[in-house]
Design a protein around this nucleic acid. Structure first.
Lengths: 237, 237
DNA sequence: CAGTGGTCTAGACCACTCA
DNA sequence: GAGTGGTCTAGACCACTGG
């Protein structure tokens, strides 16, 4: 598993900054040193510091603006939510979901959850939410997160619409990517009860694993979408 | 629409190379000049030529290997097909689809097709395919492409499994990205007839627009997937 | 062994931002 | 006007590839 060759200098610089973000020394919105200063601090040239910052920018971890500087990226409800929430109208515009209901439960983890989240995950929070768009309830989400990573989550109820922005803000856990599997399923009785859909209607079910900056799986999520008026939209490159 | 600032030097270099690929002067698999030679040819430094090549590599247009050189990327049936064909087994492994049937028809374009493919698209080829995986017919694909871009396509029947690799090879049209919209639908009588699925069963329907290196929409595709054993798999970053 | 891309440095000029 | 990132140059050394 180990790589014989050491990491390039620029990568060590960028990983050092990631580590500072993960351990909380750098918080979202904070200004980073300039390329020249960063290079001096780390004992590398400006070009190398520049490359590290460019790497972080490409990964969406920092934001750079000419004349202004480099700041740790903030996951706002806008940027964050719409990046990981893929339902769009027919014209491609973003859908504005509202939270219709929310329940949070603390319980023992299942074997499958421990397999994905790590064996130290004895307890989890199970968060069930229903979202409506344009007055129609068309999304059910079942999220599972380790209690260890999100202590005292029940005290924060009601949770904000955009979970990932909240996690970064309140727990310092930043989502890097989400791996998803989509399948078509029939709405069951519970779906018909919770959403504006008839039992037996086709839904898209999305199973997601959300991965943070430390490459840990920090959330398991299963979502069910009614796709009558909105579609799940992606771009393959 | 126009940008006041001129393109950076490195971008002009990379766009020049893209143009050479588009017009056929550079074909897939061909070796590019080294960074130093390219810089000399274009009157820029090695660093700038390097940046242009890195840009092309990031966009998947060329492949670079230390010690070997830079070549125009080849869309092989493996690399290409599995990039744009997202069905995966439960363990994440790639599914091996077989072509179960194929029909090609030349006809006038519809108004909707002209809106997407360009008003000069008077005629299109409509390609309908059924794919099977593990002996089960679980994919229907309806592709529409302009006759102008793919002349004499009927002479190439049967078309290979991986369409995009074939297009690049036979017509010099390289797919850069594909924008997709996913919805859950019920299998109709034609689906039940063509695939191993019962009428009314839930399917995922994917509507795709494929875009080439010149930013033209060159294909409209509608696919229907049975997701009992396989799931549509993506990664959001 | 010659040639390639990967990394790294040092320095220059420019465009942009903000006080 | 001082400071930032964006671009560009010129040159160095290294690791890898292939004959």
């Amino acid at each position: 598993m180990d790589d014989m060759t050491p990491l390039p200098l620029w990568r060590r610089v960028s990983e050092d900054i990631v580590a500072r973000i993960v351990n909380g020394a750098l918080r979202p919105g904070v200004m980073l040193p300039s390329e020249i200063d960063l290079g001096r601090e780390m004992g590398v040239s400006q070009g190398t510091a520049r490359r590290a910052l460019r790497d972080l920018e490409r990964r969406g971890i920092v934001e750079r603006r000419q004349g202004r500087g480099t700041v740790v990226a903030i996951r706002t409800p806008e940027t964050d939510h719409f990046h990981f929430f893929r339902l769009r109208h027919a014209d491609g515009s973003e859908a504005q979901p509202m939270l219709a209901s929310e329940t949070l439960q603390r319980r023992r983890s299942t074997a499958a959850e421990r397999a994905a989240l790590g064996s130290e995950t004895k307890y989890v929070y199970a968060l069930d939410r229903i979202r409506s768009i344009g007055g129609k309830r068309i999304v059910r989400e079942f999220s599972v997160v380790p209690v260890l990573l999100f202590p005292a989550l029940e005290d924060r109820i009601p949770l904000p619409n955009a979970l990932y922005a909240f996690w970064q803000d309140a727990y310092g856990i930043a989502i890097q990517k989400a791996d998803e599997r989509l399948r078509a399923v029939r709405a069951d009785a519970a779906d018909a009860d919770a959403m504006d859909v008839a039992e037996g209607d086709p839904l898209i079910e999305v199973t997601r694993q959300a991965v943070d900056l430390s490459d840990r799986i920090v959330e398991l999520r299963r979502s069910r979408y009614v796709t009558d008026d909105l579609a799940y939209t992606i771009s393959l490159r």
